[in-house]
Amino acid sequence: MSISVSMTVNGKAVSGKVEARTLLVQFLRENLSMTGTHVGCDTSQCGACVVHVDGQSVKSCTMLAVQAEGAKVMTIEGLAPSADKLHPMQEAFRDNHALQCGFCTPGMVMSAVDMVKRHNYQLDEATVRRELEGNLCRCTGYHNIVKAILAAAPAMKAAGV
């Protein structure tokens, strides 16, 4: 059964035809060709598919596209303020070499941005590690990811994002 969905993705109004069973991540990747959001485990454990829906981080492999009707969705593609400037979290990931193969990175960055905001830009190492519960890095590169998030928190505050 074909259903029309409309939502805002990275500030742009989009719409498309989906099936009831189409996942949000499928809609983003296959209908909109926005492949920055990854599918890792497809069982809501690894967090490679994390996007923001109405300002909250969610696993887009465990949400139907039709559930995002009318929502404001933000993906990794929408994070940077311009083509030549990274978001402070992306910048911190680069500065701290917080990625190895890079597959988990989009989800890590999206979870991290949400985490920093929820904790009002104030994080300690233990909190960051606990908050990363829903994001897996199979390269086990957590140490630098944690460092990057701790560095990004004050940078995000300073940048007002």
Partner: peptide
Amino acid sequence: IGDPQVRNR
């Protein structure tokens, strides 16, 4: 419960 993303849903 679960992780932050699961708790949001």
